[in-house]
């Protein structure tokens, strides 16, 4: 077990290094000279050269990388070109906003979708199954930003039940803050439930045709014991991995939801920075999300043996 945990941790290291290299390289590929950009149109060549030295841009690429990586390790992600704010606190505060939405949404979606998927598989080809799978396929085909707009239109503008624009932090006003989160979370739950129902159904079907399920039935166990005690745990592994992937993908793709509901989250920060060509912030966002994605998947991997003890032996 310890060996399993250690090997997974060690396996994540090269990925983390390569992810950092990729982020660093990506930013260096962006056309344009950051120094010139920071100084604006009126800058003199001498000023630009001075700025380049100050930013370390005159050094070789590997040197620049190690300086950058060293700073990142010390928590220094640089400063925003636009407003000179340090990047890390900015990214962290925005990340907190996005993360609360994503986490709650994925949790709710899993709670609804996984049992639904298992039931659909158990009653394969019945009307219940067809209805669940059909609904799931439709739900996952609806783009979140459109779904968000429709919900906004209906609950916000038509019915007036929920606030339409803006955001209040939960910390400052619990009830008000919650109200602002209802619609974005609902949007994500509806969409991701579609994905997860199908996933849970497929992996349960896979398990249900195995001999040990027949063996469990042949022992005289009730259907609920067969499904929940024997099938569910074994079928949950792939779904669990999927939940990890969804979590990461949502963190990366939440920009559209934040745009629809005007929420000041990480996604919106990243998009705004791309418009403003604020490289240090883009870089910080990319690195932060990619690393949290790696960590989420690592966490998912580490818990996987709970559902399938065989992975430890491999």
């Amino acid at each position: 077990m310890l060996r399993f945990i250690l090997s997974r941790l060690v396996m994540a290291l090269p990925t983390i290094v390569l992810v950092s290299v990729t982020v660093f390289a990506l930013i260096r590929f962006i056309p344009g000279d950051p120094a010139a950009l920071m100084l604006g149109d009126m800058a003199q060549p001498a000023q630009i050269a001075e700025m380049r030295t100050e930013l370390g841009l005159d050094k070789s690429m590997p040197q620049q990388f190690f300086i950058w990586a060293g700073n990142v390790l010390q928590g220094d992600f640089g400063k925003s070109i636009v407003n000179d704010e340090p990047v890390l606190p900015l990214v962290v505060s925005r990340f907190a906003v996005s993360a609360q939405i994503v986490l709650v949404a994925v949790l709710l979606a899993s709670l609804i979708a996984v049992p639904a998927g298992v039931i659909a598989a158990w009653r394969q080809n019945s009307l219940t199954d067809l209805a669940l799978v059909g609904t799931a396929t439709v739900l996952l085909s609806i783009p979140t930003f459109w779904l968000g707009l429709l919900l906004l239109l209906f609950f916000g503008l038509k019915l007036g039940w929920l606030p339409v624009l803006g955001y209040v932090s939960i910390g400052s006003n619990v009830v008000g803050g919650l109200l602002y989160l209802v619609l974005p979370i609902m949007t994500l739950v509806i969409h991701e439930a579609g994905v997860l129902i199908r996933m849970a159904r497929a992996s349960t079907l896979e398990v249900l045709r195995l001999d040990y399920i027949t063996h469990a039935r042949a022992k005289g166990l009730s259907e609920s014991a067969v499904i929940w005690r024997h099938a569910f745990k074994n079928a949950f592994g792939p779904t669990w991995t999927m939940i990890g992937l969804i979590l990461g993908n949502l963190l990366g793709g939440i920009a559209v939801i934040e745009t629809v509901f005007t929420i000041p989250g990480l996604g919106r920060l990243m998009v705004d920075s791309i418009f403003a060509r604020d490289y240090p912030v883009i870089q910080g966002c990319l690195l932060f999300v990619a690393l949290s994605y790696v960590l989420v998947n690592l966490f998912v991997d580490l818990l996987y043996p709970l559902f399938d003890p065989r992975v430890v032996a491999e």
Binding site: P14, T15, L18, V19, V21, T22, V23, L26, I27, F29, I30, P31, G248, N249, L250, L251, G252, G253, A255, M270, V271, I274, R277, I282, L286, V289, A290, Y293, V294, N297
Partner: peptide
């Protein structure tokens, strides 16, 4: 694997900047 460690849309966002 390193590239897959980025959520697809995030990598696309970064690449779009390029």
């Amino acid at each position: 694997n390193a590239l897959m460690a980025f959520p697809g849309i995030l990598l696309a966002l970064g690449l779009l900047a390029v």
